[in-house]
Design a protein around this nucleic acid. Structure first.
Lengths: 283, 283
DNA sequence: CAAAATGTTCGCGTATCCTGAACAGCAAGC
DNA sequence: GCTTGCTGTTCAGGATACGCGAACATTTTG
């Protein structure tokens, strides 16, 4: 709903570190809009301060972003607690440790700690957006959401293939998610980047809901040599974080459909009774 | 234009560190919208990841903000150069030094360095939004914009009074801005916070345009005792920063109306010839 | 100097958003 | 307990505001 706002967000999200500057025509071409519409969007978003207009008529992100960012970090105290636990995990394993949440159907990295080994896995920095269907934390978080949600995400972002191992079939992904849900952890065996694997474990709050996922990312050879140990480390780490921050009231964030199940039978216990019984678990 | 997007931004800006959580009814009451409209806005903005929906139906900022913030900081290299110069200034004066830009008609603090003296002036942290009509950097930036822009800003945000010294009359503000423009610096004599004064100087790029302002904020007694010295320090500091970062191409940010003048006669030289001759210097 | 690109403006038609009223859960209230 | 206020949510009709295409102004390319 409110497609105008959705499109404005799309425009905003075009501004990445790799491509920080956009003009009207470029935006129009990229999003398939008429130039005049692109102009209206850029102009309006700039007017409210989220973009800044250069003299040339091109645009960059505006400093009002900084304000929102401050507000966000200020009321996310659990970040620090999680970071300190993750530091221990990095020290123990020497590998790259990261924490991610889902936002807007994609995976956003919240904390990244690079491994201490010289050949630690390189992953994208905190704040990055990565697809959810081909990363361990992404699949972990998808697995604990109802299929209706997963379907909506896939409709919107598709199942892009990055390596030969990437799951690009909906059915295959579905059974993978069911398996992950049952086991309680997720693997990514070179599904996003060749030569890089990852294990992810869910961080739960006191209601058993999973909002964020912890991942340990490791170069393939070493990953396969210590698969079980890494998995246990991830699970234990996620568990410790859960205990530390699970009762933080700020941590009860959730999407629209937390409690419903993947299959339709197996059901997650919600914190409070379900209110609307929107059982159109379509597709 | 695009009032839908504007309202969505208004909704987003409600989420401050002091008030990080909002429900549908609260937003509706605050912005004077029907509940259903507030619902649509919150719901849509959450869908794109800029907000996050709690289980209770209340909302918080979403982590997609983090992504934008990363992009912004990544392509704002002049922050570091400015910060190092400001550090020198803090060391020399012992006072609180800050740097601010205008975004969405209000003043956004980009860098804040607390003074080293035990009784240094306390100001709001980086990322904060403060009014522009009653702060020294705000008035400095307004003064270098055409009156049409100033008028639009005042129409939108009004002239709220914070202390007996706050300028609340449009005419009075106008002559104040003209004076500031002529002199090249701005004072704030307890116009925003009682007992606190500030001097601001413009940071210019190589075209002579002013995008950011440097401020030194000081408790009133000490301010009046060293008024001229502080002013010179601010001007010199701003000048050094200008020379360091003035040629950074990222620093040529500008609004819609940079070049036109306050009065209609006196004219700022633009980098490139003026294109649109929108001379509706209304009001 | 010509030509293709840019950002910008304007007006019309229609799709989209805004609204108000009704619904469903929840938390207190005599 | 049942009721009264409060949440968030849904729906459908009517009016507004958005999106489009064409034309303009300017700059950069050839």
């Amino acid at each position: 709903m409110l497609q105008t706002v959705e499109k404005a967000a799309q425009v905003l999200y075009l501004f990445t570190p790799e491509r920080p500057e956009w003009g009207v025509s470029q935006v129009a071409a990229e999003l398939g809009l008429p130039k005049s519409s692109a102009h209206a969007f850029l102009s309006t978003v700039a007017e409210v301060g989220l973009l800044y207009r250069l003299m040339t008529g091109r645009y960059r992100l505006g400093f009002r972003i900084l304000t929102l960012s401050q507000s966000l970090l200020h009321n996310t105290p659990w970040r620090e607690a999680a970071a300190s636990e993750m530091e221990k995990l990095r020290h123990a394993t020497g590998e790259t440790v990261h924490l991610a949440v889902m936002a807007g159907g994609e995976l956003v990295s919240v904390i990244r700690l690079d491994g201490t080994r010289p050949d630690h896995a390189q992953i994208s920095p905190a704040g990055s957006v990565v697809p959810s269907h081909c990363t361990a934390p992404g699949k972990m978080l998808l697995a604990l959401r109802p299929w209706a949600f997963v379907g909506a995400v896939l409709d919107q972002h598709g199942l892009e293939g990055f390596t030969p191992n990437t799951i690009v079939s909906r059915d295959e992904l579905r059974s993978e998610l069911l398996k992950i849900r049952e086991r309680g952890f997720a693997y990514d065996i070179e599904e996003y980047r060749a030569g890089v694997c990852c294990v992810a474990a869910p961080v739960r709050n006191h209601n058993g809901e999973t909002i964020v996922a912890l991942g340990i990312t490791v170069p393939s050879e070493r990953f396969h040599a210590h698969k079980e140990a890494l998995r246990e480390a991830a699970l234990a780490g996620a568990e410790r974080i859960s205990q530390q921050i699970g009762f933080d009231p700020d941590f009860t964030q959730s999407g629209r459909y937390w409690w419903t199940s993947v299959e339709g039978r197996e059901e997650l216990r919600p914190a409070r009774p379900i209110r609307s019984k929107r059982s159109k678990d379509s597709e």
